[in-house]
Amino acid sequence: MTRADFRRAWAVAWKDLLTERRAKAAFNAMTFFAALMLFTFGFALGPDAPGTPGQAGGLLRHVAPGLIWVAILFSGVLAVDRSFQLEAERGGLEGLRLFPGDRKAIYFGKLCANLIVLFALEAVLLPIAAVLYSIDLWPRLPAVAAVTAAGSLGFAAMGTFYAALTVNLRARQVLLPLLLFPVLIPVVIAAVKATTLALHGDPMGEFGSWMRLLGAADVLFLTVCAWTFEFVMED
């Protein structure tokens, strides 16, 4: 990728973020949906259910990392689903294809926009989770932020790719999660584990190895998706 490709990628990302900031269509619905999920988990699991013996807090607090990541995945898929939809509806995808330069620029631009929307979602979601599940988030924020950033990168890398792949499909909204979630399992496992260790203590010092697994998944996803994106954007 050349300097011009970086400029193109940023132009795509800026355009998407600007549209999103003005319409707020995806972000509002997504954040509301995610917050509602966190709230519903409270009813599903019960606020009084006992947690693990010997650990402070009830079941909700204990499984909070898993609940947070499920909420991020399920609501985040709404955001990545939209990322090629606007262009596809008005024929803008043709225009994007006609621009000169590397097609990877489109991928990285879309990825960047998706990632920023995800970060904004998580910035709202984590405090809500901390309040609802009584997690003492503030002292553990750097570690949690690092896990969230790495997990979101892997999610956005695969999510952007599959969103482009399914953009013209009739049953897109069913098929995108169907294709995306199974391949994201490594990210889910590593992110939930690392978040648990960051929030509930890490006596065995495992945090680093889960972060490395997360990083390895991120690098692999980014490389493979960027390489094969050329084939996605054909015709």
Binding site: L165, V183, P186, I189, L220, V232
Partner: peptide, 20 residues
Amino acid sequence: LVATIGFLNLPIVYYSVRWW
């Protein structure tokens, strides 16, 4: 593309679940 990405992902799925 779906088959290629799905197949390439299998080793990393396996190792992550094995660690799990």
